[in-house]
């Protein structure tokens, strides 16, 4: 959004002509938030296309694991321990005789759920707080920002571990810990953009028209400030999946024997000399998921940036 100070507009701020100009400006602002429909987003951003294909593949795997493996993720086979990858066991087997490929496939849904669930609530709460802090400023702003300062004074992993220490391990508590640590970034991003947007003509115009604060915040400002948070959210999903897996890797996340990527990779730690495939191959899968989501984020960034 252009942010040039239109002195001419401010100078003739008499009710009638300014009112018309304001209505026009307010209308453009609402229009500007409509997505462009000229060219399909995938043609405009190859990153988005490749990323979406990768992510769609894993969503399919999460929804229908039976399509990718005929095995049972909890089936132990004592005669099939620590076998290297083969046609029967695509990723080999571990020290318990679990088929790693089967467990990795069944873990997909849990890991994707952890990623998406960890981001969704902080996204909504963080954006709302940023909007309120930026728009109203003053006392409310300083309260929100001082609380935020306290949250970001902790390295996120340290705070997440402290929370899991209190609530106990497990999927639900892991997600709660992520909620607590991930909202500040959204608040910061949105607040900074609201501070700029507040000075812009379309907001001044909407104010001149006497629109309510709520209408200005949600219909005029929000659509214009949300894009950086959407782009960030894509990379945040990757980070939450990795942090969640990292917690399980430390033994503080998803309990055994539930299939989860971090826990599977952690299980291979003691066998890196004798059976390195236990850790390497599931990690490779995770990296591909991360790559897909990062590409989606890059693609969204390309699309939303070219609009300016």
């Amino acid at each position: 959004m252009s942010q040039s100070d239109d002195k001419g507009f401010k100078a003739d701020a008499t009710p009638t002509p300014a009112g018309e100009a304001a209505a026009e400006l307010a209308a453009t602002a609402e229009e500007a938030s409509q997505p462009e429909k000229r060219l399909s987003p995938f043609r405009r951003s190859p990153s988005l296309l490749v990323g979406t294909i990768i992510v769609a593949f894993f969503v399919l795997m999460a929804l229908f694991p039976q399509l990718f493996t005929s095995g049972d993720p909890y089936a132990l086979d004592g005669s099939q321990m620590l076998l290297p990858p083969s046609a029967d066991h695509l990723m080999g087997t571990d020290n318990f005789g679990y088929d790693i490929w089967t467990r990795v496939v069944y873990a997909t849904s849990l890991d994707l759920i952890i990623g998406v669930a960890s981001v969704s609530l902080p996204f909504v709460v963080g954006v709302l707080l940023g909007l309120l802090a930026g728009y109203y400023g003053g006392k409310l702003d300083s309260i929100i920002m001082r609380v935020l300062d306290c949250f970001v004074a902790f390295p996120f992993m340290v705070l997440a571990i402290a929370i899991v220490a209190i609530l106990g391990s497990g999927v639900r508590n892991l997600i709660i810990a992520m909620w607590v640590v991930s909202w500040p970034e959204y608040t910061r991003l949105v607040r900074a953009e609201v501070l700029v947007a507040k000075q812009s003509e379309y907001v001044q115009a909407a104010k001149t028209l006497g629109y309510s604060d709520l209408r200005i915040m949600f219909r005029h400002i929000l659509p214009n400030v949300i894009s950086s948070s959407v782009v960030y959210a894509a990379s945040d999903v990757v980070m939450c999946i990795m942090t969640g897996a990292g917690m399980s890797f430390l033994g503080l996340g998803v309990p055994q024997p539930t299939p989860e990527w971090g826990a599977i990779i952690s299980g291979g730690k003691s066998f890196i000399t004798t059976a390195p495939w236990i850790s390497i191959l599931p990690g490779l899968m995770m990296a591909v998921v991360g790559l897909g989501l990062s590409l989606v984020g890059d693609g969204l960034n390309d699309l939303l940036r070219t609009k300016d």
Binding site: M242, A245, G246, G262, S279, G283, M286, A287, S294, L295
Partner: peptide, 22 residues
């Protein structure tokens, strides 16, 4: 850079350990 961004740290650590250590 994209690969670096997508790889979990603990996995990268284990890989480096296997290649350079073991």
């Amino acid at each position: 850079a994209l690969i670096g961004l997508s790889s979990p740290a603990f996995w990268v650590g284990l890989l480096l350990l296997i290649v350079f250590g073991v």
